[in-house]
């Protein structure tokens, strides 16, 4: 196996570290954002359960609310 592909004539450590750091930071931001989104959807649905049946039915007519309910039910 040609190790120079990974060593890159001594520059490997800088190159691999750059790519690794970039993807780790991107992955962290993605996971954190997804977690916040899921939590907010869950909290929103929890709060709608405290509403009266009539209020909930009125709320469900809104497209955004319908979307949140659908999105949450998928997960």
């Amino acid at each position: 196996m040609n190790l120079n592909i990974f060593l890159m004539n001594g520059y490997g450590i800088y190159v691999w570290l750059s790519f690794l750091l970039t993807f780790l930071v991107c992955l962290f931001l993605f996971l954190r954002t997804r977690k916040t989104l899921k939590k907010l959807e869950k909290d929103f649905i929890k709060e709608t359960q405290n509403l009266s049946q009539q209020q909930f039915e009125d709320l469900k007519k809104q497209r955004i609310v319908k979307e949140i309910l659908v999105s949450h039910s998928r997960t």
């Binding site: 931001l29 993605f30 954002t33 997804r34 916040t36 989104l37 907010l40 959807e41 909290d43 929103f44 709060e47 709608t48 509403l51 209020q55 709320l59 955004i64 609310v65 949140i68």
Partner: peptide, 22 residues
């Protein structure tokens, strides 16, 4: 991808605030 997820987060936050006013 991140922008759209963040946009949804901000929208739900606004909706949650309006929910409290009900």
């Amino acid at each position: 991808l991140i922008f759209l997820m963040k946009y949804r987060i901000e929208t739900i936050r606004v909706k949650k605030k309006s929910l409290k006013k009900l």
